[in-house]
Design a protein around this nucleic acid. Sequence first.
DNA 1: CAAGTTTTTGACCATATGGTCAATAACGTA
DNA 2: TACGTTATTGACCATATGGTCAAAAACTTG
Lengths: 208, 208
Amino acid sequence: MPRPRKFRESDVISSAGEVFAVRGLAAATLDDLVRATGLGKQSLYNAFGGKRELFFRALSEDREEATRAVSEALGHDDASPLERIRGHLLTMAIEFSSSDRRVSLTTRALVESTGEEDPLSTATKAGIEQLAGIYARCLEHARENGDLAEDVNVQSLALYFVAVTRGMELLGRAGVGRGVLTAVALDALRALRGQRMEEPDDRPSVQE
Amino acid sequence: MPRPRKFRESDVISSAGEVFAVRGLAAATLDDLVRATGLGKQSLYNAFGGKRELFFRALSEDREEATRAVSEALGHDDASPLERIRGHLLTMAIEFSSSDRRVSLTTRALVESTGEEDPLSTATKAGIEQLAGIYARCLEHARENGDLAEDVNVQSLALYFVAVTRGMELLGRAGVGRGVLTAVALDALRALRGQRMEEPDDRPSVQE
DNA sequence: CAAGTTTTTGACCATATGGTCAATAACGTA
DNA sequence: TACGTTATTGACCATATGGTCAAAAACTTG
């Protein structure tokens, strides 16, 4: 009975996400969104709410997409867990060295959220944890494989990879090229190699 | 002869920087700046120019400050280069786990710059390189000390540390606490340990 | 084909924004 | 103490912003 919509929500969210990724939440204007999505202001408004709500939807989609991508990269069985992480990081190096002006919405939300209780902040934390969870699972497999020392802290190592990838994203944004970013990724992977050997940490503890 | 200013530029820049660090360039309003600095709009305007110019000044100051801090942490002679890096990273872990909403202006500029030719972008790139240079110098010393393998790529390793610290900053922003962040920092440091041994990289190359 | 429901359209609005102007105030020097 | 210079103040402005309203349009079902 009701008049059907002319658009698919997913299309709109994806276009809007593109705008947000390039301009940021605060800097993107409603007009940018209208232009990018093709919808009228009002249509946008009663379908989604407002700018923040739309960003929120885009953020969720971005998060799902990122989760899916990482899961896929780390979940295959064609290589050892550590090799899969290696492959994933190298892929990221290529992706982040692209010259488009995109910044992942997770990073944007992290940086643009206004307070601890901002829904953006909450969602982002959840996203980070989810991502870390994926790394953790893969690292756990590596440990079971014997590729990682038994006493490795899989949780912190997972977060370490989240940090490294975020950092690589920023580096890419700063114009660091593909070759160098790949080298950085390889450096980052050495943190894993160190884990394999039981070498006791005999280095003196500096200012802790 | 002329009427003297009531303020010190450095004070104003520092207050403005605080605002920018907490709210971001786009989200900070001129009024926020007026309130934070205590100056009138016009005074602000003819002393600095506008919002962007003021941000630019604040960014420069932030960059100098960051450079100074890292130089200090890595430049002392009381410990081996690697130990100094270790200490520095642990310090960062503490700093980034603070609950204030600050984000370094470098990161903000990186994320909020609008294009490749944006002055913000240029300045930020320079900042990153400068920072990397400091790490590189320290790593170079480590190599001379024999704490790092001869064939280590000091440049990429330096950028690796820039990436790691940026990533840690974001993690802190996501609410990751001091303990975990410290663990992440220690993980990151293992990338160095891996360098010390000449173990050939016999791992198969995955999708490069 | 008519009714009912929702979308769309485009005009509209209050507000807040970054920025400017002109008048006044404050200071050092002559 | 008067002058010249610059800083300050507060009113002012055009614009762009996020958001809203009411009327028209579109589709499905009865």
